[in-house]
Amino acid sequence: IEKFKLLAEKVEEIVAKNARAEIDYSDAPDEFRDPLMDTLMTDPVRLPSGTVMDRSIILRHLLNSPTDPFNRQMLTESMLEPVPELKEQIQAWMREKQSSDH
């Protein structure tokens, strides 16, 4: 029984630690959010139409349809242009958020 109590305490400790580690990014500025999924972008790319999306989301879309989801023009992965300035701004915002939450 004592071992179970210790195990339960350890589990509670881990759960509390994980809860502290989770950071809420739901208040991200609109320009940091993917327009299709409304999630925080981690690897922004510009489509030929000028729309900026997260790379993982547009690549997932391209698996089903080789088109720009906003104007239905033909689109391939090679046409995606990285946006390193925005990526750095997002990373800086995330770092600031992490340091203010801890």
Rank of each mutant, 00 (worst) to 15 (best):
L62V: 03
Y25A: 11
E2V: 08
S100T: 07
R72D: 01
I58S: 01
P66S: 08
E85K: 13
Q98L: 10
P35V: 06
N71D: 02
T76V: 06
A19R: 13
L6R: 15
V15M: 10
R33W: 04
K3L: 02
S26L: 14
E22Q: 08
L63F: 00
K97P: 07
E2P: 03
M37K: 02
P84R: 08
K10N: 12
T67R: 02
F32A: 03
V11K: 07
S26G: 13
K10S: 15
I90N: 01
L36P: 01
M94L: 14
S78D: 09
H102C: 12
S78N: 10
E13N: 04
A92L: 07
D68N: 15
D101T: 05
R55L: 03
R20S: 14
S100Y: 07
S26A: 12
L75Q: 00
I58M: 03
L40M: 09
D27G: 13
T67L: 02
F4W: 06
E31G: 10
E81W: 03
M94N: 08
S26V: 15
P44L: 00
K97D: 11
S26R: 09
K3E: 06
E22G: 06
E96N: 06
R20C: 10
E13L: 06
R72Q: 03
K5A: 11
T42I: 11
L6D: 12
G50S: 06
I1L: 07
D24N: 06
P66A: 12
N64T: 04
D43G: 01
L36R: 01
P69L: 00
L6Y: 08
P82E: 09
V83I: 14
W93C: 02
R72P: 00
N18R: 15
S26D: 15
V45M: 04
Q73P: 00
E9D: 12
L80I: 05
A16P: 09
K5N: 09
F32V: 01
D24A: 08
S78T: 07
E96V: 11
T39R: 01
D27H: 06
L36E: 04
Q73L: 12
M41V: 03
H102Y: 12
D68A: 00
L75R: 00
R72N: 01
Q98H: 12
L36I: 15
K97Y: 13
Q73N: 07
L63I: 13
K17M: 14
R95K: 02
R72L: 02
A19D: 08
I23S: 09
P69C: 00
I90V: 13
N64P: 00
I90S: 02
S65P: 00
L40I: 10
E12T: 07
D54H: 02
K17Q: 13
A8E: 13
S26T: 13
Q89E: 07
L80P: 00
M79W: 12
K10R: 12
N71H: 01
E77K: 07
D30H: 06
D38S: 02
K17T: 13
D101V: 08
H61K: 03
V11E: 12
S99G: 10
E9L: 05
T42F: 09
V83R: 04
H61D: 01
K10L: 03
D24V: 07
M41K: 01
L80V: 07
P48S: 03
L36M: 02
L59M: 15
M74R: 11
R72H: 02
E12G: 08
P84T: 15
M37T: 08
L47H: 03
N18Y: 10
A21V: 11
E77N: 10
S78G: 13
S26W: 15
K10V: 14
I90T: 04
V83M: 09
D38V: 15
Y25S: 14
R33A: 01
A92S: 15
F4C: 10
K3V: 04
A19M: 14
Y25N: 14
E13A: 12
P66T: 05
F32L: 06
E77A: 05
V45E: 01
Q91N: 07
G50A: 03
S99R: 11
M53L: 15
R20G: 11
R46N: 02
T51P: 15
L40H: 13
R95I: 09
N18M: 07
N18P: 04
S78E: 12
S65N: 03
E96K: 13
P29R: 06
D38G: 03
T67S: 06
A28D: 09
S99I: 09
P82T: 08
T42S: 11
S56F: 03
P44A: 01
Y25H: 09
M74L: 14
A21D: 14
E81D: 11
Q89H: 07
D68S: 00
M94R: 14
P66G: 07
K97S: 08
M94G: 11
S78I: 05
P44S: 00
M53K: 01
D34E: 02
Y25F: 13
L47Q: 00
T39S: 06
K10P: 11
A21P: 11
F4Y: 09
A8P: 11
R72S: 01
L47V: 15
F32C: 01
F4L: 13
K10E: 13
L86P: 00
P69R: 00
L6S: 14
K5E: 09
S99L: 09
P44R: 00
D38Y: 15
E77T: 07
K97G: 15
I1K: 10
R33E: 02
I1T: 08
E12V: 07
I14M: 13
